[in-house]
Design a binder for these strands. Structure first.
Lengths: 209, 209
DNA sequence: CCAGAAATCTTTCCATTGTCAACATCGAAA
DNA sequence: TTTCGATGTTGACAATGGAAAGATTTCTGG
């Protein structure tokens, strides 16, 4: 194992850390990436942050609360990934819709452990306001896109439901299968080919307009 | 909490259990259903089976090996659910294809904890022969259906890849979102309406023939 | 039928983990 | 400056997975 740039203990001068809360969230992500959610340990996070094993308790009620905060941050980054992908495209609305889906899948592939925490775990408290709101914003991107394309509003028009569910299920299923290693794509598949494949598949799920 | 029919300790007469291996797998599923994968404990399984906490070691290398065996059983039951759904339909191949997808989603909804173990956890050893083979059989159902409909073989024709991936991603994404509580379908949605919705969405992912 | 071997189960022990309680240190407001 | 809340540390506890060693039963070869 060579040099890693993941956060690690850096002996500090002051008794107080200064920004332990944020440091712990970063440490939790590093812990998640290295050990996976199954091997995640709160004491490991504390060690990475260079504090004693009980220090996190002053910032997070328990280990799950720390994971909740990390998951909320994850949803914000997922939103950013989708927004960035949409902005990078200037075509019609359908193209932007597909691009946002690619952004969703890209985020999952780039952050498998985080994605798994966000969607595949009951450890974070998904009802906690910060997490629920961040998740709601991601959902809003999707419903907004569908509304723009079809003119149907998810909130008021039940007919929009099928479009929204289909689109979300498709990008989510792709993400889960890819990061779960269930799909064995060619190892050396170039980025453009990968993008084209994902885009074509996402297009199938899109609303018929 | 009222009466439960989940396996529980039944004091035994003999020193040897008789069929501890299978009993432990059943106990593991009960443990999973009640506590979730996060709260799963090997000692809890042993208690359910009515044996000491170290007894499982004689049948499973470690806790993950027990989960692997349970996951393999899960894949067999997933296969059965898909096969049953297909057999219950006598229409053209597309209808059977859609039915198998509904069987996939139904299995997930009926066994959320097991499904999560099978697809959303790194605790089972997915390379272990029993598990890998059971998973392979499920995959074969899908590729077989696509081949029957389109005449393209996944193994030899790369063009079949998109069809297979799209179909699998769609049913898998639906399953994950439904059991993750992310999709808020009307609580009282009747079974026929639910089935129609799922079928319509699966149809979108199907091959164009 | 019987003695040894193998399988199965139990008890005991240990390291790790999350959490709690008690105490120490620091900074900011009164 | 003093006091107090926020932040950090140490020590303890119960629960857990796993290893080691002993107890009990079953199997197997003579």
């Amino acid at each position: 194992m060579l040099e890693t740039d993941l956060p690690t203990a850096a002996p500090r001068k002051t008794y107080h850390h200064g920004d332990l809360r944020q440091t712990l969230i970063a440490a939790a992500e590093a812990e998640l990436i290295e050990k996976g959610l199954e091997g995640f340990s709160l004491r490991g996070c504390a060690k990475r942050a260079g504090v004693s094993h009980a220090a996190p308790a002053h910032h997070f009620k328990d280990a799950d609360a720390l994971l909740s905060a990390l998951a909320a941050e994850g949803f914000d980054r997922l939103n950013a990934s989708m927004a960035e992908a949409m902005d990078a495209v200037d075509g019609d609305m359908m193209e932007k819709f597909v691009a946002s889906g690619v952004g969703y899948v890209d985020f999952a592939c780039a952050n498998p452990a985080l994605f798994h925490l966000m969607f595949g775990s009951r450890r974070p408290d998904h009802e906690s306001p910060p997490l629920a709101e961040a998740g709601g914003r991601a959902f809003a991107v999707l419903t907004g896109n569908v509304a723009t394309m079809t003119g149907r509003d998810y909130a008021t028009d039940p007919a929009a439901g099928e479009d929204v569910i289909a689109a979300w299920a498709m990008v989510h299923g792709l993400s889960e299968l890819l990061i779960g290693g269930k799909l064995h794509l060619p190892e050396d598949m170039p980025r453009p080919a990968f993008k084209a494949l994902i885009s074509a598949i996402i297009r199938r799920s899109g609303p018929k307009i």
